[in-house]
């Protein structure tokens, strides 16, 4: 039963003096799966590599179950890492890939055999031990990579964009499998991804990162519904971010205005496409339909405000709208941000 604690960890790369991770702190509870989510260059992979021991933190402390591992080499850490590129040893077969770490621990041969076969069974590759790594498909290789880490029963499992090289269909299936295995083994897991679907569907909690810092840490549903900063709002899901000004309790951008009970000043209005209701305007339209896309279950309308700001609205009857039409907008739920923080939410 293991707890990972990251306290004020900083990583400055000497070359170019780049601050990749900036006084980052995070506690991962026992058996929890936490996703580090962010665009490339946000420091999420560097952070994971510091937990795995592949990068030395410039400052800060990393502990597992209270034991300081900040400066231990990877081979001395109770962590298991699954790499994006599988990193399977192509000169060994599947069995040898899994047995290598066990042999280093001087575990008797018959127990190695038993444990390897059990883990292969767990990842759905029972009987694949004698296969050569190059004979496996991308998804099977990634399963072997996962098995190679799991067979050593690490305290903390680290996953570095493990599905990035797989196609969409396989990615969806594997993330369900990995989530199932993680919950069955109750293994504490830190997962790096830049795919929000992956994070939203797998994580107990999501850490949204930007420029080496935490933007928000929350449960997936809260991250989606109540983003704390305009960055998170724009990064997770589709979001209309409209910059404008508030005067006398009304938000104004070009021809569009809506009541917003905050003090006067600049504000960013965030509205999900599904929270925007469109009505065909007979006169005094607030926007013009640019394109209508019918997805079968719903439609998506791209429209331009009067100053050509492009926003999106989800509609249940796309056939009601046509390109060039004038529409009026009504937002059912909005959030407003000023200076990077929430100032209003309905």
């Amino acid at each position: 039963m293991s707890v990972l604690k990251i306290s004020d960890v900083t990583k400055v790369f000497a070359a170019g003096n780049v601050v990749a991770v900036d006084t980052f702190s995070l506690d991962v509870a026992d058996g929890e799966l936490v996703c580090l989510l962010g665009p490339s260059g946000s420091g999420k992979s560097t952070l994971l590599r510091m937990v795995g021991g592949f990068e030395r933190p410039t400052g800060g402390l990393i502990t597992i179950d209270g034991e300081d591992i900040t400066h231990l080499p990877p081979e001395k850490r109770p962590t298991g890492m699954v790499f994006q590129s599988h990193a399977l040893w192509t000169h060994m077969n599947v069995f040898k890939n899994l047995a290598f770490g066990l042999k280093l621990r001087r575990i008797p041969a018959d127990e190695i055999k038993r444990r390897v076969e059990a883990v292969l069974e767990l990842v759905g590759l029972g009987g694949y031990g004698t296969r050569h790594v190059n004979q496996l498909s991308g998804g099977q290789q990634q399963r072997v990579a996962l098995a190679r880490s799991l067979v050593l029963e690490p305290k903390i499992l680290l996953l570095d964009e493990p599905f990035a090289s797989l196609d969409q269909h396989l990615r969806e299936r594997l993330r369900e499998e990995v989530r199932d295995i993680q919950q069955r083994l109750k293994i504490t897991t830190l997962f790096v991804t830049h795919g929000q679907d992956e994070a939203l569907s797998m994580a107990d909690r999501i850490v949204v990162m930007r420029d080496g810092k935490t933007e928000q840490v929350d449960r997936p549903d809260i991250i989606y519904r109540e983003p704390q900063t305009p960055f998170v709002a724009g990064f997770i899901g589709t979001m209309n971010l409209i910059e404008g000004t508030v005067a006398n309790g009304t938000f104004i951008r070009a021809g569009y205005s809506t009541p917003l009970p905050v003090s006067d000043g600049p504000a960013i209005l965030a509205i999900r496409p599904e929270a925007l209701e469109l009505t065909v305007a007979s006169d005094g339209s607030q926007g013009k339909v640019h394109r209508v896309t019918d997805y079968g279950t719903h439609g998506l309308v791209d429209l331009d405000l009067n100053d050509n700001t492009r926003i999106k609205a989800m509609v249940s009857h796309p056939d009601l709208f046509k390109a060039g039409q004038g529409v009026t907008l009504a937002a059912t739920a909005v959030a407003a941000y000023r200076d990077g923080a929430v100032i209003h939410r309905t």
Binding site: G53, P74, E75, M81, A87, L88, W89, L104, R148
Partner: peptide
Amino acid sequence: VDRRMEEAARDVGAG
């Protein structure tokens, strides 16, 4: 030689 392969070996306990 893929550096990740070497890192994976470090990860499972090889010096």
